[in-house]
Nucleic acid binder design. Structure first.
Length: 280
DNA sequence: GACCAGGATTGCT
DNA sequence: AGCAATCATGGT
């Protein structure tokens, strides 16, 4: 089935594709402005046939209405960026929002993948984290139509720590990843069920698990569920970006950041996203 | 060869 | 409750 989508607000697919292309596991074609989105076993192709000011897309490969809802939600086709843009033009982040207008929060293709990738990224530089993620998915996941599908929790739950250790995961990271996969495989942790709960409930539920701290839980809310009002204070990248924006000679302390959150609210996630963009 | 990296846990005051 | 050590290894 093929479906055409037109958006009534400015939207930069170019930015989305560039961000997705940073992950070698994604299938992005920059010259043809297309991306393949894996939804479980179904691959949806999204092709841009519009412009920044008149965004228009062709979606092919859709089998169900639910898949359509998922793709439009993942790529943020279903939520106007206009009120968010207007909101930030009245804040001290105005310059960033003029510069990066039309940049949406896109969510991960898989909630499980989001959690595991976050754990891999903990305390590692981006480039090494991407290497580990790529190795992980290419070893345990499978490839379909040039897209890598994230492995299932069941597969990872059955691994032993030594297997991941040999792939240059630390012992701790290996334990976290296998432990959380077991909790999901055994039905103790249901990520889909969290989607209907409040931010606070999701945070407190996730933090119970070994290996998931505030940063990982907030990252799940932001890039897994697409929640709009998160600002991960623990994130080094955000601290460095504010240091640059405010021309400080050191990273700002939490107490220097938190007063701004009430002005950026209820869209703190966008403040975070645009700050991350500004140091890419 | 330090020092840091899109942190989290553990153990010690 | 709050701090420091620890983790593993690539980047700079």
């Amino acid at each position: 089935m093929t479906q055409t989508v037109e958006l009534p607000f400015n939207y930069s697919l170019e930015d989305v594709l560039n961000r997705l292309a940073l992950d070698p596991l994604n299938s992005v074609d920059l010259s043809n402005q297309t991306v393949k989105v894996p939804l479980d076993e179904t691959i949806i192709t999204v092709e841009s046939i519009g412009t920044f000011y008149e965004p228009k897309f062709i979606l092919t490969g859709l089998e169900t209405k639910e898949q359509y809802e998922r793709v439009t939600s993942i790529l943020h086709f279903n939520r106007s960026l206009e009120p968010i843009q207007k909101h930030f033009l009245n804040t001290n982040l105005q310059s960033l929002f003029l510069k990066y207008e039309g940049t949406p929060i896109i969510t991960d293709f898989s909630l499980y993948g989001n959690i595991i990738k976050s754990i891999i990224h903990q305390q590692l530089n981006l480039s090494f984290a991407r290497t580990l993620t790529e190795r992980f998915v290419q070893t345990f996941g499978k490839s379909k139509e040039e897209v890598w599908l994230f492995p299932s929790p069941e597969i990872i739950a059955s691994l032993d720590v030594e297997t991941l250790r040999q792939m240059q995961f630390s012992t701790r990271k290996s334990e976290y990843i296998i432990g959380i996969s077991k909790a999901i495989a055994e039905g103790d942790l249901n990520l889909d069920a969290l989607a209907t709960k409040s931010d606070d409930v999701v945070l407190s539920e996730l933090i119970k698990y070994r290996g998931i701290g505030p940063w990982t839980a907030e990252s799940f809310l932001l890039f897994g569920l697409g929640r709009e009002n998160l600002f991960p204070l623990a994130d080094i990248g955000l601290q460095n970006s504010l240091k640059k924006l405010w021309d400080l000679d050191r990273k700002p302390m939490n107490s220097e950041i938190t007063p701004h959150l009430s002005f950026w609210s209820p869209f703190n996630s966008y403040a975070a996203l645009y700050l991350w963009k500004n140091i890419e």
